[in-house]
Simulated scan of single mutants.
Amino acid sequence: MHVNALSRISRIPQSPPSSVRHYLPGGCESGGGIGRLVGYISNAAKDTDREHLITDTRGQKWSPATSPARLLAAVVIMAKDRVADPGRIHHIHIAGRGSTSRKLILTGVARLLGCRHILHLHDYDYARDFSRRTSTQKTRIRRMFQGADHVVVLGQRDHLTLTGDLGVDPQRIAVIRNCVPDPADRIVRVREDRRSEPPLIIFLGRLSERKGVPELLLALSHPVMKELHWKAVVAGDGPVEDYRRQAAALALSDLVVMPGWLGADEARALCSQADILVLPSYAEGMAMAVIEGIAHGLAVVTTRVGAHEEVISDGDTGVFVPVGDKDALAATLAKLVCDREQRNRLSTQARLHYLNHFSMKTYMRSLEKLYDAVSAQPQTSAGAS
Rank of each mutant, 00 (worst) to 15 (best):
G87H: 06
A184D: 12
D275A: 08
R177T: 03
I312E: 05
R189T: 15
P378M: 07
G108H: 05
H357G: 01
V76K: 14
T136N: 09
S135I: 13
G306E: 02
I202Y: 01
G59V: 04
S196L: 12
A79K: 03
R128E: 15
T332E: 02
I291A: 01
L37C: 01
I118Y: 12
A330G: 05
L270G: 00
H308L: 11
L355S: 13
A264L: 12
K61E: 13
V168I: 11
R206I: 09
C179K: 00
E197L: 13
R111I: 03
V152L: 13
D372R: 14
T100H: 11
R132Q: 15
Q156I: 00
L6M: 02
P183G: 02
V213D: 06
V83E: 04
H357R: 09
Y371D: 00
H52E: 06
A289Q: 03
I201H: 00
P13M: 07
R245M: 03
A184M: 10
R142H: 07
P64I: 14
H93Q: 15
I176W: 02
S7Q: 11
A331H: 05
L37A: 02
C115Y: 04
L207E: 06
A299C: 09
V83A: 03
L53Q: 09
P199M: 11
K369V: 00
Q246E: 07
A384F: 07
